[in-house]
């Protein structure tokens, strides 16, 4: 016994430390089903209420407009041949034409015939954003409660401490995004014929990239803050503009030009685009490559910044 006590058998390993810290976070998360439901509830309500109420395709539908069976046009509206007094159109035919036009408009603007599918897919980006931000911020609690100081006093790798937060954010986001997609499907999301369950793997990769980038920003932002209120306020402030300045609710091509510029830098745009192409739209390989490249760059840059800043703090 005493000989064993004399031996110091610490062999700190990066992977083990990282996994231990990540597992702690995941356990805490699973232990709190109320929070889990709350997180999912928000995008669920959005897509259920906003997605269903913004029935854009209904705007043009003949049922909605209720054309009379006969529609007369004054003669001067007809340019050729000239001289006609009045022209009478068949309302039923016109309805068909309108329906045709409306579905063309939807196809061109949204890529799909129903707005709900378009918007529900965007909720994946929403939940990834919120989850990544809040998980990154949990470092404030660890700091306030002294847990962070205790971890720093152990030989575990400092990088593992920071990466565990990032990894935790990514894993949570992946899980919640899956739940959201399943809920959207139940509410009437229509997958494109090119959708296969294998596409989910790519979606997870994209979610991982976005959450790495976003959670790093938040770790760097909140690691010096001793109070929870400020980062929470910041999340509230930034979530809405981030979502509205992306293609989650509306296609970027129809926005004013200055707005399009913002949409193009917003990483949420790229995740939304990836998820759309892999679920409700036909696959467009070129677009996907561009999207993945952008997200990878975003993740790499901000993870580096986040780790460097956090490292500086941890070794002060």
């Amino acid at each position: 016994m005493s000989s064993m006590k004399a031996v110091n058998d610490c062999q700190p390993s990066f992977v083990r430390g990282l996994w231990a810290l990540t597992r702690r976070e995941l356990k805490k998360w699973l232990n709190d089903p109320v929070m889990l439901v709350m997180f999912i509830l928000q995008p669920f309500i959005w897509m259920g209420l906003l997605g269903k109420s913004m029935n854009i395709s209904g705007l043009f539908s003949a049922d909605n407009i209720k054309l009379p069976p006969k529609i007369s046009l004054p003669g001067y509206a007809i340019l050729s041949p000239p001289g006609l007094q009045e022209v009478v159109l068949d309302g039923a035919v016109l309805s068909q034409i309108l329906a045709e036009i409306s579905s063309r408009i939807m196809e061109v603007a949204f890529g799909v015939a129903d707005y709900f599918s378009f918007m529900a897919v965007g909720m994946v980006s929403m939940i990834v954003t919120i989850t990544a931000m809040f998980s990154g911020m949990s470092i404030v609690w660890d700091r306030r409660l002294g847990f962070l100081d205790k971890v720093i006093s152990t030989p575990v790798s400092r990088t593992a401490i920071i990466l565990s937060k990032i990894l935790n954010a990514a894993l949570r986001a992946m899980f919640q995004a899956t739940v959201i997609l399943a809920l959207a499907y139940l509410l009437g999301l229509r997958f494109s014929p090119t959708f296969t369950p294998l596409n989910l793997l790519w979606i997870y990769t994209a979610i991982l990239l976005l959450s790495v980038g976003l959670s790093s920003i938040f770790i760097a932002f909140s690691i010096r803050s001793t109070r929870m209120e400020r980062p929470i306020q910041f999340v509230n402030l930034i979530t809405m503009p981030l979502m509205f300045s992306s293609n989650i609710f509306f296609p970027a091509s129809l926005m004013p030009e200055w707005m399009q510029a913002v949409v193009r830098i917003n990483p949420l745009t790229y995740l939304t685009d990836i998820v759309r192409h892999l679920t409700i739209l036909p696959i467009d390989v070129t677009a996907l490559i561009v999207d993945f490249m952008y997200l990878s760059l975003f993740a790499a840059v901000f993870a580096t910044i986040g780790v460097v800043l956090a490292w500086k703090y941890l070794t002060r």
Partner: peptide, 18 residues
């Protein structure tokens, strides 16, 4: 949110004790 045992094992993981 963890048990006493889980807490100790977490420490053990951080120290890398077999």
């Amino acid at each position: 949110d963890l048990t006493g045992y889980e807490n100790i094992m977490l420490c053990a993981d951080l120290y890398g004790i077999p």
